[in-house]
Nucleic acid binder design. Structure first.
Lengths: 222, 222
DNA sequence: AATAAAATAGGACTAGCGTCCTATTTTATG
DNA sequence: CATAAAATAGGACGCTAGTCCTATTTTATT
């Protein structure tokens, strides 16, 4: 029943009881994924968390794979929606906008949800085609805003170079998750690391060139 | 029977049949982890992969958790051993040594084993204390060599700042795994990304200061 | 060669899993 | 209010998981 939700929203006339149920089911599944990882997510636990029976859960999702897909779609859609917000409440200068986004993302990966959900997603994407596809869609969207700002900050960069730089910056930030994330060893250093990231990325965007990326030669600043 | 292996090696007089068995078991477990993830790793598959019965597997590892721990210990020990090698066959200048390490690590995460194993490790570390502890030991070791080079390249940096910079660089590279890893969407751009990383990290190490990290202020280079 | 220890296979056991079916209750609709 | 549709609970099914036990074979030691 994947077609049920995401179309009609609560408060609408057409909103039936099943719509709420799906939200509760997905919330329960997400909670389990975050608290115990995918290998701890069972349909019986999802049903219990949503306050319904296994038989009823089966009425909404006839198999586990459908539920997993809907879960990934929902969670990822929420993150994508967040990016749209960040883009709006941006500061004045291009630099400020760029820094704001870097800080927003690194702050966000300090939440328990992000810290625990994304490694599961990365692991799933290694063995599940749909997970890989959704993950790609998420990060493609995340890089869009970076790409725009990089283009403005360094107009000389080719499309290819710009996208590679955006990928590097995005991936670098994601990589911080298992280290400065929620209750991780370096969680207390998150702000300092955020500063380092902001400084490093802005320097990179400003000074990088197509030639440097292609040749790999280091342009000394002496 | 965790105390069996890692002490006596093949070829030794005291090497018994069980020593080989443990190696085969761990190899089988590692293969399964890489090809299907942890949620696909079952004791029956491990036994089949090692060419033994489930009962016999149980003789070596009386429960699954012990096997998982031994697997993590073994794989991580192998990666730690690799770092020692990298440090030796280094180039001449400090810059060259630094760049060599960056390139080595990013190259390595293009292998199927690294691409698939590490996201599993990160996910496991979120819910398994022992996995978290081993992971910490691995990356602490990985940062040692970075720390040394950063100290030489930027002697003014405080111990704390230096370790934060090393963490940022290490985590940044790890973050590339789900993107430029084996058969990942940007695998073909790995060399270009490697160039960007090398340039960016070296610039960072050269130009960063304690004050910049603490204040978060961006030192413009104009 | 005799004997003790190590290694192995096979099966049994319970628990939990995903899935499916059916009967019943609740809700919406004419 | 009658009726159809949606929602729900409960249980059953087969399968697979991890674990455990026992008998047997292989290996090492004296």
């Amino acid at each position: 029943m994947r077609s049920i939700q995401l179309q009609v929203r609560p408060g609408t006339a057409a909103f039936s009881k099943g719509q709420e149920r799906v939200l509760k089911i997905l919330q329960s599944a997400q909670d389990l994924m975050i608290s115990g990882g995918y290998h701890n997510l069972t349909l019986r636990k999802v049903a219990a968390g949503a306050g319904i029976s296994v038989g009823n859960l089966n009425y909404y999702y006839s198999n586990k794979q459908d539920l997993l897909r809907d879960l990934l779609d929902t969670v990822i859609a929420a993150y994508i929606a967040e990016f749209d917000n960040v883009r709006q409440d941006a500061g004045v200068s291009l630099e400020d906008q760029f820094i704001a986004i870097v800080r927003f993302i690194i702050d966000d990966l300090g939440t328990q949800a992000t810290t625990n959900f994304f490694p599961e997603l990365w692991a799933l994407a290694n063995h599940d085609e749909h997970a890989a596809e959704r993950m790609d869609a998420l990060y493609t969207k995340a890089r869009l805003v970076l790409n725009d700002l990089i283009a403005s900050l360094n107009p000389a960069l080719s499309d290819q170079s710009r996208e590679q730089v955006a990928l590097f910056i995005s991936a670098s930030m994601e990589g911080l998750t298992p280290f400065v994330g929620y209750q991780k060893p370096w969680a207390n250093d998150r702000d300092a690391i955020s500063n380092i990231a902001a400084i490093s990325f802005l320097n990179l965007v400003r000074s990088i060139s197509d030639d440097a990326i292609q040749s790999g030669k280091l342009t000394l600043q002496a």
